[in-house]
């Protein structure tokens, strides 16, 4: 029955080709550092799932943001777990993508033909930083408020464009409900759209090119 159904589906979607392309790739003999990308991808899934769940109770206005977060943490069943996974997942994400980047640099994986994979990874890293920056404000506690005050103030320091940059980030001159609302919008709509698109490209390229091998020292090359 299951086989008949999977045959029926394969005849119409060709899913087995996709499945084999993802899971039956030839993988060179590499070390555990090569799992950092997969680990980052897993955290992406974690952040997407827990982030979507949090929006069911979270309300991004100054009147409700702090109380709704407290409500999630202390009243909602498993709210502490969902918020905790999102909170710690965010930190783990920054650490993992940074280590992943170091691995790619030091083992030379960014070289031909993987330059586009590298470029998309660079943008992905910036997107992750953007997630961290916008997400930090959302609990709307003292730490969030003042961290964002400082962070947006830094955007205001360059000459000529600084003032405009600060106003665009804050949605005005001061850090207000406007700031909270736009940080929320950026955090749950703008950045996820960019992230998921680039992750798709990034993973497609990894599968297309295969995993790079560890660099080998060639005989005679240092003479």
């Amino acid at each position: 029955m299951a086989t008949r159904f999977s045959n029926w589906l394969d005849a119409r979607t060709g899913w087995r080709n996709v499945w084999d392309g993802i899971f039956l790739r030839k993988v060179p003999k590499v070390n555990w550092l090569y799992t950092l990308g997969s680990a980052s991808l897993f955290i992406v899934v974690n952040q997407v799932v827990t982030g979507i769940l949090l929006t069911i109770y979270y309300v991004p206005t100054p009147d409700h943001a702090y109380d709704s977060v407290q409500y999630i943490t202390t009243q909602v069943a498993l709210g502490w777990l969902i918020r905790g996974l999102h909170h710690w997942g965010a930190s783990a994400m920054v650490v993992l993508v940074f280590l992943h980047m170091l691995r790619v640099i030091f083992l030379g994986s960014y070289k031909f033909p993987r330059e586009v994979t590298w470029f998309s990874g660079v943008v992905l890293f910036l997107v992750v930083i953007g997630f961290g920056f916008t997400g930090y404000l959302l609990p709307w506690d003292e730490k969030a408020y003042w961290a964002t005050t400082v962070g947006t103030q830094i955007a205001g320091t360059p000459p000529l464009i600084g003032d405009l940059a600060l106003r665009i980030l804050r949605g005005g001159e001061e850090l207000t409900a406007m700031t909270l609302a736009r940080f929320f919008g950026i955090h749950i709509w703008v950045l996820p759209a960019i992230l998921l698109g680039l992750v798709g490209l990034h993973v497609y390229l990894v599968i297309k090119h295969g995993i790079s091998t560890t660099p080998k020292r060639e005989e005679n090359s240092h003479e």
Binding site: N46, V49, I56, A77, L78, G79, I82
Partner: peptide, 13 residues
């Protein structure tokens, strides 16, 4: 591991 806590989180309150 994700699905069961998610269902509890959404439904129990």
């Amino acid at each position: 591991l994700f699905g069961i806590p998610a269902a509890i989180f959404v439904v129990k309150p």
